[in-house]
Design a binder for these strands. Structure first.
Lengths: 229, 229
DNA sequence: TAACTGTAGATTGTCGACAATCTTCAGTAC
DNA sequence: GTACTGAAGATTGTCGACAATCTACAGTTA
């Protein structure tokens, strides 16, 4: 079969245990903003919501704490983590280094099919800049970078990168969601793709790092602006 | 006070909850090799050992699973993770990128006191190469790199790096612990320290990355050798 | 002997309950 | 009105128990 990485619900329930299922569910709640940043997470409520006891919920929360998506205070509960600008800066520092590595690796081992998918995503983003569909641009942008790290062919790198991305996503939820610069951002994507297509590993790495740097700058500008909608 | 990062036992027990305490305890068991690589971890045994019920144990194990120190199979239990050479290679890929960043940052912001500590550690390693005290060299080497990442002044980078280091440590426990090259390794340390002392950020980054690359090569040589003691 | 089957024991998965702690808020004193 | 006190309610921390599942092994059959 072509798509081996799509497990059925049956397999999911059989292989993953309840805490694991609950974990991704809670993660969605956090990353979608349904559980507000800084808010306390009530174990009983979640247990009720998912139809389980508190045990599995607690296990899931402990895992999410390790992901740094929540923090825990003894006898007070767990809270959705709030990321400061300083912390986001730290993450960007690491992300820049990883992005350079990703660019290099992808340029070395990308397949024609993968390159096609990347270009398709970039073109889709072009459309959203025309229609100013910010939400969709973000989703595509996330998908684009997720594909990139996936295509780098290093599972540990993927894990590390995704962990960072989740943290940055959490930061964006803090409210100061940056507007502007979509067209610019996507033009950077295209430059990266060009370097990748030409197999220029060093250049692809540099360009993807530069993209992360610019992305950080956009983040700062958005954070500095009062609160644009 | 000079050293603020040394909490008393009282603070530890009051702030951290039982699962957190148990987690570091189990982590020690794994990293010290008392829980063998690949071995199944028995929840009841651990509960008995730490004088708790299985609840806190399970929470700790879920956190350790997120650290990738153990893996979990539904209805079969959790196992101490065994790292393959291929996985170790992946980790080194990421580590090399991070080490370059670390070298750069430390060169930019190291204090005289910190530099003194680093040099002291390097000198201590020199002594162990003379006496062929491999165990002590490894401990000092770990401490040396831990200091470096700490002095880079980026908490998220530290977390990311330590996670990787734990994984690599787990790999070493797999048996094929590399001998040889200690003197060479430490001479690389000294070159890094020189670049740091001179404030040459780019060079310090390159040298620390190169050190990681050589370290990976040493790992490969050790893995290729049958099983030298 | 080899392969299969079924049972006993061990282990994990999940739950409900209770104690410890925190939070809230009404009541009181000044 | 403000600050303190204490009790009621809510929430977390931990435990022991039971069901579901897996593992090991003795017994059976060919």
């Amino acid at each position: 079969m072509a798509h081996a990485a799509v497990p059925t619900v049956l397999q999911l329930v059989q292989s993953n245990s309840l805490p694991a299922l609950v974990q991704v569910e809670i993660e969605q709640l956090i990353l979608s903003g349904e559980l507000a940043v800084g808010q306390r997470v009530n174990e009983s409520d979640l247990a009720l919501r998912f139809g389980t006891s508190r045990g599995p919920i607690r296990e899931a929360l402990r895992a999410l704490e390790e992901c740094r998506l929540v923090r825990s205070e003894k006898n007070r509960g767990v809270f959705v983590r709030e990321i400061s600008v300083a912390e986001a800066d730290e993450m960007y520092d690491v992300r820049e280094a990883l992005d350079e590595l990703i660019g290099q690796r992808v340029a070395e081992r990308v397949t024609p099919d993968q390159l096609r998918d990347l270009k398709a995503a970039s073109m889709a983003m072009d459309e959203t800049t025309a229609t100013h569909d910010i939400k969709r641009y973000h989703a595509l942008n996330l998908k684009f970078h997720d594909m990139l790290v996936e295509f780098a062919g290093n599972a540990r790198l993927t894990e590390t990168y995704r962990l960072l991305t989740k943290g940055l996503l959490l930061f964006r939820l803090r409210g100061l969601q940056g507007g502007g610069g979509f067209a610019v951002s996507n033009s950077e994507h295209k430059a990266v793709l060009e370097a990748i297509a030409s197999g220029d590993s060093a250049r692809a790495g540099q360009l993807l790092r530069q993209h992360a740097i610019e992305s950080r700058a956009r983040m700062h500008r958005a954070a500095a602006a009062p609160t644009e909608k």
